[in-house]
Design a protein around this nucleic acid. Sequence first.
DNA 1: TTGAAAACATGATATTTGTCAGTTTTTTCT
DNA 2: AGAAAAAACTGACAAATATCATGTTTTCAA
Lengths: 228, 228
Amino acid sequence: MGRCENCIIRQFNSLRAMSKEELKRVSDTKTTKLVKKGETIFGEGEKLNGVFCVRDGVSKLSKLSPNGKDQIVKLATKGAVLGQRSVITEEVANLSAIAVNDMEVCFIPKDAIVDSLNSNPNFAVEVLRHIAHDLKEADDVIVNMSQKTVKQRIAEAFIYLEENFGKDNNGYLALTLSREDIANVVGTATESAIRIISDFKKLGLIKAYGKKVAIADRKALNEVAKGS
Amino acid sequence: MGRCENCIIRQFNSLRAMSKEELKRVSDTKTTKLVKKGETIFGEGEKLNGVFCVRDGVSKLSKLSPNGKDQIVKLATKGAVLGQRSVITEEVANLSAIAVNDMEVCFIPKDAIVDSLNSNPNFAVEVLRHIAHDLKEADDVIVNMSQKTVKQRIAEAFIYLEENFGKDNNGYLALTLSREDIANVVGTATESAIRIISDFKKLGLIKAYGKKVAIADRKALNEVAKGS
DNA sequence: TTGAAAACATGATATTTGTCAGTTTTTTCT
DNA sequence: AGAAAAAACTGACAAATATCATGTTTTCAA
């Protein structure tokens, strides 16, 4: 099994602030697992006794509402550490983590994290920076949700997907989400999302090849995302 | 001027994890200021070289959107530390802090905070816990915004105000917000908020005495907040 | 490969929410 | 106290969005 010390992924998250000794400990206690598309890594309300470091694939972090609808709060990819928040506050998970495509994740038991937090200020501050950044992003999402139209939010979502998950060789978005997932990201009904995406296609803002979507007119899409 | 070591407010925030020496330093460098209702403590985009500890009064943390509407992301009261996030990530403030009523705040220069973070793991972890908790709350707000109706959100807002800011001697909410502020908290048009609040009054869910509002039928209001 | 299930799509319609335009009430300031 | 400003309110209407019903296409596993 791989050693954390050599893990490239680490460079992207707070684990890079760990000392050699701490990393060794993490490496010795961690386990790696494969998660198939659609499988749940952990569910809302579950008690977590560790965190999950994403080595490959994408996970959606979502919350189920009483009326049966999911709200996707965040998409986490390579380098992200899932469950950190719950471990820190010692609460149960308030979001579910479900694989959007096949994933490889490392499970790191709680103690290795908590002990380092308490003894290594560098690590604690690094984690703090990450969570503080997440908080800023969450605040931005709140503002977007309340002040932008569904059309604007969907336009933004495509731009976000291109910027954060990149494009494949043919220029199509590397991450393919179902219409339902897109609806759940922007907080609207699936039918509404489908209609707007169809409109975007007709207007030439995006193009599709099977399930794949590509941004065809970035500038115009940006216009839609900003003004009405 | 008061000494932080004796400040009761401290018990409610992360400063309680500071050592005697650290508190002494904070005490020596801090300044206290009075902020009148409506005045700005700091604005969006402003570079902060310190944090503000709320000793009395309430501040709204909000973001202005291009169309001129404010979204209130959070209400901060006694014990809250404002600007912490920006100081940690070394970014400009992404929210404005405006006094909702007369306030008394202590300004603590950045260095005292940053130095303690880097050297005192207890303090770093305590701050981490607070920010992690804020993040959870922000995620909950995102879900509420996208999955509840305006009516539900306004009902929730009144319950939130009672639970977090309490009642006066006569049972009225201790914190009085303008209709516009309520609208900006739940993310709707001022007129819509006014209409719904009028409905609540007619239905006997709340009652009003001048500007003061009281929850009249807590159970029914709860029903509205949950189901539709 | 083929049948069932899931995802995608579209129309018709209802509901929710926002906007505009104005009136009344309350607050603030001198 | 009285004028001006701000806040609260109301109605009419428009726009955005959700819901329901149904048909089509795609995916996937037996």
